[in-house]
Simulated scan of single mutants.
Amino acid sequence: MLTRALIVVLAILNLGVACWWLLRDAPPKPAPPPRPAGVAELRWVPGGTDAAAAAQASSEAPAPALVERDPAAATAVASTPAPAAPATPQAEPAKAPAAEATSSPTPAPAPVAQAPAASEPPRCIALGPFADRAAASAAQGRAGTLLNQARLREQPAASGSARYRVLLPAAASREEAQATVKRIVAAGLGDYYIISQGEDANAVALGQYRNREGAERRIAAVQAAGFQPRLVASGDAGQWWLDGQLAGTAQPAQVQQRSGAARQQSLECARLR
């Protein structure tokens, strides 16, 4: 009995709570937050018939015609970077002209034409005199590169005044000179004598000649016998000169000192050709 009474009471209470829940006022909805200025309102469009119709309409719409484009133009458009967002302008008008002046190339100064240097005319000289060809040749070697187009020149002596002697080197004593004479006789040579005084003392003279050709033939004969004579010119004998053109900035006095010549003379360069 008590159980039934409790069940009835609970049923009545549940019914009362249900009626109260259905009949109470709905709570007020919270107000939406304020929308920022300049921002469009986002609305949600539910699907269904409208969405399906919109999709069908877009599928039935004719596709735009394809337009052929230049590949180079397409490449240029694709490679063009998007414009950057404008930054806050911080212009410095005072420095703009300086930047333009720096970026612009400065024209190079035009080359100044130089007048060609006037070449100096060649200078030629004659060095000498030398007693024989060997002395002139030795002077040529000493002059070296200071002379260009160098050549040896013999100046003939006046007729009847030249003398050429053929001598053997001076011995250390009179006895050695006499021993040399014995060797000369044994070789079958004649026309000899021993010089007793002077700078050629104890030298053996093998003849004196008025022309150079005769003296040179005598020297050849003595050399064939095994001796080494030398030619000595005397009187107004022929002289040897060294002719040449001065090289570069060489001076006549410098070349004369280098060669050991007694004097130097100006010479026409045409005579060297």
Rank of each mutant, 00 (worst) to 15 (best):
S234L: 08
V222W: 01
G207D: 01
G214L: 01
A225L: 15
R217L: 12
Q223K: 13
Q228K: 15
A233P: 09
S234D: 13
A220Y: 02
V222T: 15
S234K: 12
G235I: 13
R210C: 07
G238E: 05
A225W: 08
A221W: 02
R230N: 07
L206C: 07
R230D: 04
D236T: 07
Y209L: 05
A224S: 11
Y209D: 05
L206A: 04
G235D: 14
W241P: 08
Q228D: 13
E216P: 03
R230Q: 11
Q223S: 10
R217F: 06
A221K: 09
P229N: 05
A237G: 13
A215Y: 00
A220M: 03
N211L: 05
A233M: 08
R210V: 05
A205H: 05
G238A: 15
I219A: 07
R230F: 06
G214S: 06
V222M: 03
V222G: 04
R210Y: 14
V232K: 02
E213S: 12
G214H: 01
Q208M: 13
G226T: 13
A205K: 02
I219L: 09
R212K: 10
Q208C: 07
R218K: 08
S234I: 06
A220V: 06
F227K: 07
Q228F: 10
A224K: 15
A215G: 09
E216D: 10
L206G: 02
A220R: 04
L206M: 15
Q239D: 12
Q228R: 12
A224D: 09
D243I: 04
E213M: 08
Q228E: 14
W241H: 10
D243E: 14
A233T: 13
E216L: 13
L242T: 03
I219C: 05
N211D: 15
A215D: 02
A215C: 11
G214N: 02
R212H: 09
E213V: 12
A205Q: 06
E216N: 09
G226A: 14
F227Y: 14
R212W: 06
A237V: 07
Y209C: 10
L242D: 00
V232N: 02
W241C: 10
A220P: 02
A237I: 06
A221V: 13
W240D: 07
I219S: 04
P229C: 11
P229R: 03
E216G: 08
S234E: 15
G226P: 13
A237T: 11
A221M: 11
G226Y: 05
A233N: 11
G214K: 01
W240E: 07
G238Y: 01
A224G: 12
W240G: 07
P229T: 09
R210I: 05
Q228T: 15
E213R: 08
P229Q: 04
Y209M: 08
P229I: 06
R212T: 11
L231R: 04
A205I: 03
F227M: 12
L206T: 05
D236W: 03
P229L: 10
W241S: 10
G238D: 07
A224N: 14
D236L: 06
I219R: 02
N211H: 09
Q223E: 12
E213G: 15
P229K: 03
E213F: 08
